[in-house]
Write a protein that binds this DNA or RNA. Structure first.
Length: 411
DNA sequence: CCTCCACCGGAAAGCCGGGTCA
DNA sequence: TGACCCGGCTTTCCGGTGGAGG
């Protein structure tokens, strides 16, 4: 049989998987009417040739901030075309575009100027932006998503952008800042704050009911009719609502459940698939967390893996440190002090890779009791992917044959 | 009730790579 | 270009401590 025939005849789950990704902006945002209307009324002056107020938008991840802004932005551009008003919305993700120069260059390019992504003096790019705006009598609404990332590198851009209007003849600029960090204002110059936050909109987390509506709306587009068991969506919604009402998480859960069902060649998605999806997402998160760990932490964690494998369900800072020190020596890496390792252990704890609590063993001192509470095989595999740590694999094999505990000795 | 272990965790200073400014 | 600054990482130093054993 032709392999494609095989694939084509297998049960079909997804009509359109992309609808469940967070890059997708739906045509209708349930339970965000209030925010949409507020934002629209703030931006409306743009259509009458006035400058809209600057807006700051707050809300945790997955509360629909970006989707709402993009949605309103699209509608605004649409109607301004109809009314023949020169008004555009320029979206910038500050996680990627995180310096004054890049923000200005991206803006200039969007306005039809060719500015290299590097090389020019910053004020020349600034002039270029101003010229473009004045010449076209353009109104631009700049969306700075994850604005807190930008602020951490200095608020000069924001300062310049917020007073650019007074230097323009005909062009108009207003700024929409999106942040999930409520405290990010602390890093700002008070003048910038007052100009930037002329208006503020808060996005509260979704509750389980609302998440259910969102999922149902998307599921209609994403899945074929009747492939979802009735309990699947309420279950996903309930799980995501427990964790801060994050719609992104709920959608991920639904998508991964579908993918698992598809891979299993099942003809419907069941609650069991959702349960598996929870596990898969969690283990992917852990793998990612381990992968991005600094090298020293990886060695440390590898030491913990070895201890766990040789039967220690829990161990103390001192024990791990001895193992860690040995491993470092054998693979020729620098050995950090115990004080530092103590901090690295706390970090691993915060990432949820290990469990550690400070206990007192009376006469035998006070220490942290550490437990590795993730699948050790996964952790080990990911650590060994690091080319600098290949040597660890050999050491581990040697240890299996010798008494594994010998790592402890020779302090 | 006191001691004293084996570490915790704060403070401060040093080091280093990168960026800024005259 | 060199002087300088900044922030992240690391070391040094050290005072603090819960509770088993005496």
């Amino acid at each position: 049989m032709n392999i494609f025939e095989d694939i084509l005849t297998s049960p079909r789950i997804f009509k359109n998987r992309d609808v469940l990704r967070h890059t997708y902006t739906p045509d209708d945002l349930p339970h965000r009417d209030e925010q949409i209307r507020t934002l629209a009324s703030i931006l409306a002056p743009a259509l009458r040739g006035e400058t809209p107020s600057n807006v700051l938008i707050y809300g945790k991840t997955g509360t629909g901030k970006t989707a709402t802004v993009k949605f309103v932005g699209r509608q605004l551009e649409e109607i301004s075309r109809k009314l023949n008003v020169r008004c555009m919305v320029h979206y910038i993700n500050c996680e990627l575009i995180d310096t004054q120069y890049r923000v200005l260059a991206s803006l200039a390019n969007a306005l039809g100027r060719t500015v290299p992504m590097t090389g020019w003096p910053t004020d020349q790019v600034y002039e270029e932006v101003k010229k473009a705006l004045d010449m076209k009598e353009q109104t631009v609404i700049i969306v700075l998503d994850e604005i807190d990332k930008l602020v951490k590198k200095g608020d000069e851009v924001l300062y310049n952008l917020s007073r650019i209007n007074s230097e323009l003849e005909k062009g108009k600029v207003s700024i929409i800042g999106i942040s999930n960090d409520l405290k990010f204002k602390n890093y700002l110059d008070p003048r910038v704050i007052s100009s930037l936050s002329e208006e503020e909109i808060i996005f509260p987390p979704y509750n389980a009911e609302q998440l259910k509506d969102i999922l149902e709306q998307r599921a209609k587009l994403a899945f074929y009719d009747g492939v979802l068991d009735d309990e699947v969506i309420p279950y996903c919604a309930a799980l995501a609502a427990q964790e801060h009402g994050d719609a992104r998480k709920a959608l991920d859960l639904l998508r991964v459940s579908g993918e698992i069902a598809e891979k299993e060649n099942a003809d419907r998605v069941t609650k069991e698939h959702v349960k598996k999806a929870v596990k898969k997402i969690e283990s992917d998160h852990i793998a990612e967390a381990v992968r991005t760990l600094p090298t020293q932490s990886k060695i440390l964690l590898f030491g913990m893996v070895l201890l766990t494998e040789s039967g220690y369900r829990k161990f103390t800072t001192g024990e791990v440190y001895a193992v860690y020190k040995n491993l470092c020596r054998r693979i020729g890496m620098d050995v950090l002090t115990q004080r530092r390792i103590s901090d690295l252990i706390s970090e691993l704890d915060m990432l949820g890779i290990i469990n550690s609590i400070v206990i007192s063993k009376g006469r035998y001192g006070r220490t942290r009791e550490i437990k590795l509470d993730v699948p050790i095989d996964d952790v080990k595999r990911v650590i060994l992917e690091d080319y600098r740590l290949e040597a660890l694999e050999r050491i581990e094999k040697d240890l299996r044959n010798v008494a594994s505990l010998s790592v402890f000795e020779e302090a």
